[in-house]
Amino acid sequence: MEYFIELFFSGLTRGSIYALIALGYTMVYGIIGLINFAHGEIYMIGAFTSFIVATVLSILGFPLLAIFVIAALAAAVWSSAYGFTVEKLAYKPLRNAPRLSPLISAIGMSIFLQNYVLLAQTSDFMPFPQLIPEFGFMEPIAGIIGSSDLVILLTTAVVMVILTWLIKFTRIGKAMRATAQDRTMAMLVGINVNHVISVTFIIGSALAAIGGLLIASHVGQINFFIGFIAGIKAFTAAVLGGIGSIPGAVLGSFILGLTEAFATGYVSSDYEDVFAFSLLVLILIFRPSGLLGKATIEKV
Protein backbone atom coordinates (compact mmCIF):
# COMPACT_ATOMS: atom_id res chain seq x y z
CA MET A 1 0.00 0.00 0.00
CA GLU A 2 2.83 2.34 0.87
CA TYR A 3 4.37 1.59 -2.49
CA PHE A 4 1.08 2.48 -4.15
CA ILE A 5 0.94 5.85 -2.38
CA GLU A 6 4.55 6.54 -3.23
CA LEU A 7 3.86 5.84 -6.90
CA PHE A 8 0.73 7.95 -6.70
CA PHE A 9 2.67 10.97 -5.47
CA SER A 10 5.47 10.48 -7.96
CA GLY A 11 2.77 10.35 -10.65
CA LEU A 12 1.27 13.57 -9.36
CA THR A 13 4.68 15.25 -9.43
CA ARG A 14 5.27 14.14 -13.01
CA GLY A 15 1.78 15.20 -13.90
CA SER A 16 2.23 18.69 -12.52
CA ILE A 17 5.42 19.21 -14.48
CA TYR A 18 3.71 18.00 -17.65
CA ALA A 19 0.84 20.32 -16.84
CA LEU A 20 3.12 23.35 -16.61
CA ILE A 21 4.50 22.60 -20.06
CA ALA A 22 1.24 21.39 -21.58
CA LEU A 23 -0.53 24.63 -20.69
CA GLY A 24 1.77 26.51 -23.05
CA TYR A 25 0.97 24.11 -25.87
CA THR A 26 -2.72 24.18 -25.31
CA MET A 27 -2.97 27.96 -24.95
CA VAL A 28 -1.03 28.58 -28.13
CA TYR A 29 -3.03 25.95 -29.96
CA GLY A 30 -6.27 27.40 -28.70
CA ILE A 31 -5.39 30.82 -30.04
CA ILE A 32 -3.54 30.30 -33.30
CA GLY A 33 -4.12 26.61 -33.96
CA LEU A 34 -0.45 25.79 -34.14
CA ILE A 35 1.50 22.97 -32.54
CA ASN A 36 4.36 24.98 -31.13
CA PHE A 37 7.08 22.39 -31.51
CA ALA A 38 9.66 24.76 -30.11
CA HIS A 39 7.85 24.87 -26.78
CA GLY A 40 9.86 21.94 -25.40
CA GLU A 41 12.99 23.89 -26.28
CA ILE A 42 11.68 26.95 -24.45
CA TYR A 43 11.30 24.74 -21.40
CA MET A 44 14.86 23.51 -21.85
CA ILE A 45 16.13 27.07 -22.19
CA GLY A 46 14.31 27.94 -18.98
CA ALA A 47 16.00 25.06 -17.20
CA PHE A 48 19.39 26.01 -18.64
CA THR A 49 19.05 29.68 -17.75
CA SER A 50 18.12 28.81 -14.19
CA PHE A 51 21.04 26.38 -14.08
CA ILE A 52 23.47 29.10 -15.16
CA VAL A 53 22.04 31.74 -12.87
CA ALA A 54 21.82 29.39 -9.88
CA THR A 55 25.39 28.17 -10.33
CA VAL A 56 26.75 31.68 -10.69
CA LEU A 57 24.89 32.82 -7.58
CA SER A 58 25.96 29.82 -5.55
CA ILE A 59 29.57 30.45 -6.54
CA LEU A 60 29.12 34.05 -5.42
CA GLY A 61 27.74 32.72 -2.13
CA PHE A 62 24.10 33.76 -2.08
CA PRO A 63 21.67 32.12 0.37
CA LEU A 64 19.58 29.23 -0.96
CA LEU A 65 16.21 30.97 -0.91
CA ALA A 66 17.55 33.99 -2.80
CA ILE A 67 19.13 31.70 -5.38
CA PHE A 68 15.85 29.87 -5.87
CA VAL A 69 13.82 33.04 -6.32
CA ILE A 70 16.32 34.81 -8.59
CA ALA A 71 16.87 31.69 -10.70
CA ALA A 72 13.12 31.21 -11.11
CA LEU A 73 12.67 34.85 -12.10
CA ALA A 74 15.56 34.76 -14.55
CA ALA A 75 14.28 31.54 -16.09
CA ALA A 76 10.79 32.98 -16.50
CA VAL A 77 12.07 36.27 -17.95
CA TRP A 78 14.43 34.75 -20.47
CA SER A 79 12.12 31.95 -21.50
CA SER A 80 9.37 34.47 -22.10
CA ALA A 81 11.78 36.55 -24.14
CA TYR A 82 12.64 33.51 -26.22
CA GLY A 83 9.00 32.56 -26.63
CA PHE A 84 8.15 36.09 -27.71
CA THR A 85 11.04 36.24 -30.19
CA VAL A 86 10.31 32.82 -31.65
CA GLU A 87 6.73 33.83 -32.30
CA LYS A 88 7.76 37.08 -33.98
CA LEU A 89 10.43 35.45 -36.13
CA ALA A 90 8.99 32.10 -37.07
CA TYR A 91 5.22 32.17 -36.70
CA LYS A 92 3.97 35.70 -37.22
CA PRO A 93 5.00 35.98 -40.87
CA LEU A 94 3.17 32.70 -41.51
CA ARG A 95 -0.11 33.55 -39.93
CA ASN A 96 -2.09 33.24 -43.13
CA ALA A 97 0.01 30.52 -44.71
CA PRO A 98 -1.20 26.94 -45.23
CA ARG A 99 -1.39 24.93 -42.02
CA LEU A 100 1.71 22.90 -42.64
CA SER A 101 4.07 25.87 -43.06
CA PRO A 102 4.11 27.15 -39.45
CA LEU A 103 4.39 23.58 -38.21
CA ILE A 104 7.52 23.00 -40.24
CA SER A 105 8.85 26.37 -39.22
CA ALA A 106 8.28 25.26 -35.62
CA ILE A 107 10.19 22.03 -36.16
CA GLY A 108 13.01 24.06 -37.67
CA MET A 109 12.98 26.43 -34.71
CA SER A 110 13.11 23.50 -32.32
CA ILE A 111 16.15 22.00 -34.06
CA PHE A 112 17.78 25.44 -34.17
CA LEU A 113 17.30 26.18 -30.47
CA GLN A 114 18.52 22.76 -29.43
CA ASN A 115 21.72 23.15 -31.37
CA TYR A 116 22.09 26.74 -30.29
CA VAL A 117 22.21 25.65 -26.66
CA LEU A 118 24.43 22.73 -27.57
CA LEU A 119 26.95 25.06 -29.23
CA ALA A 120 26.68 27.93 -26.79
CA GLN A 121 26.91 25.72 -23.74
CA THR A 122 27.73 22.05 -23.71
CA SER A 123 26.56 18.63 -24.82
CA ASP A 124 27.32 17.02 -21.46
CA PHE A 125 24.93 16.37 -18.65
CA MET A 126 25.42 19.13 -16.11
CA PRO A 127 24.69 18.73 -12.39
CA PHE A 128 21.88 21.02 -11.36
CA PRO A 129 22.36 22.57 -7.91
CA GLN A 130 19.84 21.35 -5.35
CA LEU A 131 17.64 24.38 -4.85
CA ILE A 132 14.96 22.77 -2.73
CA PRO A 133 16.22 21.80 0.72
CA GLU A 134 15.02 18.76 2.66
CA PHE A 135 12.46 20.15 5.04
CA GLY A 136 12.61 18.97 8.64
CA PHE A 137 8.86 18.57 9.00
CA MET A 138 8.75 16.24 6.00
CA GLU A 139 11.03 13.67 7.59
CA PRO A 140 8.41 11.22 8.89
CA ILE A 141 6.91 10.75 5.45
CA ALA A 142 10.08 11.26 3.42
CA GLY A 143 9.86 7.70 2.09
CA ILE A 144 6.53 8.44 0.45
CA ILE A 145 6.78 12.03 -0.68
CA GLY A 146 9.96 14.07 -0.85
CA SER A 147 10.37 17.76 -0.16
CA SER A 148 10.86 18.65 -3.80
CA ASP A 149 7.69 16.74 -4.72
CA LEU A 150 5.83 18.85 -2.21
CA VAL A 151 7.28 22.09 -3.57
CA ILE A 152 6.46 21.06 -7.11
CA LEU A 153 2.88 20.18 -6.24
CA LEU A 154 2.35 23.40 -4.29
CA THR A 155 3.95 25.59 -6.95
CA THR A 156 1.87 23.99 -9.67
CA ALA A 157 -1.30 24.46 -7.65
CA VAL A 158 -0.53 28.14 -7.07
CA VAL A 159 0.33 28.68 -10.72
CA MET A 160 -2.91 26.99 -11.81
CA VAL A 161 -4.97 29.21 -9.54
CA ILE A 162 -3.25 32.35 -10.83
CA LEU A 163 -3.66 31.24 -14.42
CA THR A 164 -7.34 30.45 -13.96
CA TRP A 165 -7.88 33.85 -12.39
CA LEU A 166 -5.95 35.52 -15.19
CA ILE A 167 -7.99 33.87 -17.90
CA LYS A 168 -11.38 34.09 -16.24
CA PHE A 169 -11.36 37.54 -14.71
CA THR A 170 -8.81 39.88 -16.26
CA ARG A 171 -9.08 42.00 -19.37
CA ILE A 172 -6.28 40.23 -21.17
CA GLY A 173 -7.80 36.88 -20.24
CA LYS A 174 -11.08 37.90 -21.79
CA ALA A 175 -9.25 39.08 -24.89
CA MET A 176 -7.47 35.73 -25.06
CA ARG A 177 -10.71 33.79 -24.84
CA ALA A 178 -12.27 35.99 -27.49
CA THR A 179 -9.32 35.53 -29.82
CA ALA A 180 -9.45 31.78 -29.31
CA GLN A 181 -13.12 31.72 -30.23
CA ASP A 182 -12.92 33.80 -33.36
CA ARG A 183 -9.89 35.79 -34.34
CA THR A 184 -11.50 37.92 -37.01
CA MET A 185 -14.41 38.80 -34.77
CA ALA A 186 -12.02 39.68 -31.94
CA MET A 187 -10.22 42.06 -34.29
CA LEU A 188 -13.51 43.66 -35.26
CA VAL A 189 -14.41 44.46 -31.67
CA GLY A 190 -11.07 46.16 -31.20
CA ILE A 191 -8.85 43.54 -29.66
CA ASN A 192 -5.22 43.83 -30.64
CA VAL A 193 -4.77 40.22 -31.73
CA ASN A 194 -1.01 40.44 -32.21
CA HIS A 195 -0.67 41.69 -28.70
CA VAL A 196 -2.85 38.87 -27.35
CA ILE A 197 -0.83 36.25 -29.20
CA SER A 198 2.43 37.68 -27.84
CA VAL A 199 1.05 37.63 -24.31
CA THR A 200 -0.04 34.02 -24.77
CA PHE A 201 3.44 33.03 -25.83
CA ILE A 202 4.96 34.92 -22.93
CA ILE A 203 2.70 33.31 -20.34
CA GLY A 204 3.14 29.84 -21.81
CA SER A 205 6.92 30.22 -21.91
CA ALA A 206 7.11 31.48 -18.35
CA LEU A 207 5.08 28.47 -17.16
CA ALA A 208 7.37 26.13 -19.06
CA ALA A 209 10.43 27.83 -17.55
CA ILE A 210 9.10 27.30 -14.03
CA GLY A 211 8.44 23.68 -14.91
CA GLY A 212 12.01 23.45 -16.22
CA LEU A 213 13.49 24.86 -13.04
CA LEU A 214 11.43 22.56 -10.81
CA ILE A 215 12.09 19.37 -12.71
CA ALA A 216 15.79 20.11 -13.14
CA SER A 217 16.29 20.63 -9.43
CA HIS A 218 14.17 17.52 -8.76
CA VAL A 219 16.14 15.30 -11.11
CA GLY A 220 19.46 17.01 -10.39
CA GLN A 221 20.88 17.12 -13.90
CA ILE A 222 20.28 18.88 -17.17
CA ASN A 223 21.18 18.54 -20.80
CA PHE A 224 20.40 20.34 -24.04
CA PHE A 225 18.22 17.44 -25.17
CA ILE A 226 15.71 17.36 -22.29
CA GLY A 227 13.28 19.60 -24.13
CA PHE A 228 12.44 17.13 -26.83
CA ILE A 229 10.99 14.26 -24.85
CA ALA A 230 9.40 16.54 -22.25
CA GLY A 231 7.83 18.58 -25.03
CA ILE A 232 6.45 15.53 -26.77
CA LYS A 233 5.03 14.12 -23.53
CA ALA A 234 3.48 17.42 -22.54
CA PHE A 235 1.98 17.70 -25.97
CA THR A 236 0.64 14.18 -25.58
CA ALA A 237 -0.92 15.29 -22.31
CA ALA A 238 -2.46 18.33 -23.95
CA VAL A 239 -3.90 16.20 -26.75
CA LEU A 240 -5.17 13.64 -24.23
CA GLY A 241 -7.18 16.30 -22.47
CA GLY A 242 -8.36 17.87 -25.70
CA ILE A 243 -6.01 20.42 -27.14
CA GLY A 244 -7.11 24.01 -26.75
CA SER A 245 -8.81 23.31 -23.44
CA ILE A 246 -6.95 24.50 -20.33
CA PRO A 247 -8.61 22.20 -17.76
CA GLY A 248 -8.17 19.44 -20.32
CA ALA A 249 -4.41 19.99 -20.40
CA VAL A 250 -4.19 19.71 -16.63
CA LEU A 251 -6.39 16.62 -16.51
CA GLY A 252 -4.46 15.01 -19.37
CA SER A 253 -1.15 15.75 -17.65
CA PHE A 254 -2.21 14.10 -14.41
CA ILE A 255 -3.59 11.07 -16.23
CA LEU A 256 -0.36 10.76 -18.18
CA GLY A 257 1.81 11.25 -15.10
CA LEU A 258 -0.12 8.69 -13.05
CA THR A 259 -0.21 6.17 -15.90
CA GLU A 260 3.53 6.45 -16.33
CA ALA A 261 4.23 6.20 -12.63
CA PHE A 262 2.07 3.11 -12.13
CA ALA A 263 3.18 1.46 -15.33
CA THR A 264 6.85 1.92 -14.53
CA GLY A 265 6.29 0.90 -10.93
CA TYR A 266 4.28 -2.24 -11.54
CA VAL A 267 5.17 -3.33 -15.07
CA SER A 268 8.55 -2.25 -16.38
CA SER A 269 10.52 0.96 -16.39
CA ASP A 270 12.00 0.28 -19.84
CA TYR A 271 8.74 0.99 -21.56
CA GLU A 272 7.87 4.24 -19.79
CA ASP A 273 7.55 6.25 -22.99
CA VAL A 274 5.80 3.44 -24.83
CA PHE A 275 3.01 3.53 -22.25
CA ALA A 276 2.62 7.26 -22.70
CA PHE A 277 2.35 7.05 -26.48
CA SER A 278 0.13 3.97 -26.43
CA LEU A 279 -2.24 5.76 -24.09
CA LEU A 280 -2.33 8.66 -26.51
CA VAL A 281 -3.07 6.45 -29.50
CA LEU A 282 -5.78 4.56 -27.59
CA ILE A 283 -7.56 7.68 -26.40
CA LEU A 284 -7.43 9.31 -29.80
CA ILE A 285 -8.95 6.23 -31.41
CA PHE A 286 -11.96 6.32 -29.11
CA ARG A 287 -12.20 10.07 -28.55
CA PRO A 288 -10.53 11.80 -31.48
CA SER A 289 -10.87 15.24 -29.92
CA GLY A 290 -9.46 14.34 -26.52
CA LEU A 291 -11.16 13.95 -23.15
CA LEU A 292 -12.46 17.47 -22.65
CA GLY A 293 -12.08 18.77 -26.18
CA LYS A 294 -15.08 19.81 -28.15
CA ALA A 295 -15.69 17.67 -31.18
CA THR A 296 -15.55 20.06 -34.07
CA ILE A 297 -18.05 19.57 -36.81
CA GLU A 298 -16.77 20.85 -40.07
CA LYS A 299 -19.39 22.88 -41.81
CA VAL A 300 -19.29 23.31 -45.52
Binding site: L89, A90, P93, L94, A97, P98, S101, P102, I104, S105, I107, G108, M109, S110, I111, F112, L113, Q114, N115, Y116, L119
Partner: peptide, 20 residues
Protein backbone atom coordinates in the same frame (compact mmCIF):
# COMPACT_ATOMS: atom_id res chain seq x y z
CA UNK B 1 30.01 20.31 -39.18
CA UNK B 2 29.30 21.60 -35.68
CA UNK B 3 26.96 24.17 -37.11
CA UNK B 4 25.31 21.72 -39.46
CA UNK B 5 22.11 21.14 -37.51
CA UNK B 6 21.95 24.78 -36.49
CA UNK B 7 21.99 25.88 -40.11
CA UNK B 8 19.56 23.11 -40.92
CA UNK B 9 17.00 24.36 -38.43
CA UNK B 10 17.47 27.97 -39.48
CA UNK B 11 17.07 27.02 -43.14
CA UNK B 12 13.73 25.42 -42.41
CA UNK B 13 12.45 28.54 -40.72
CA UNK B 14 13.84 30.90 -43.37
CA UNK B 15 12.52 28.74 -46.17
CA UNK B 16 9.02 28.79 -44.68
CA UNK B 17 9.09 32.53 -44.06
CA UNK B 18 10.59 33.71 -47.32
CA UNK B 19 9.84 30.99 -49.83
CA UNK B 20 7.03 28.78 -48.54
Amino acid sequence: SDYRMLVFGATLVLMMVFCP
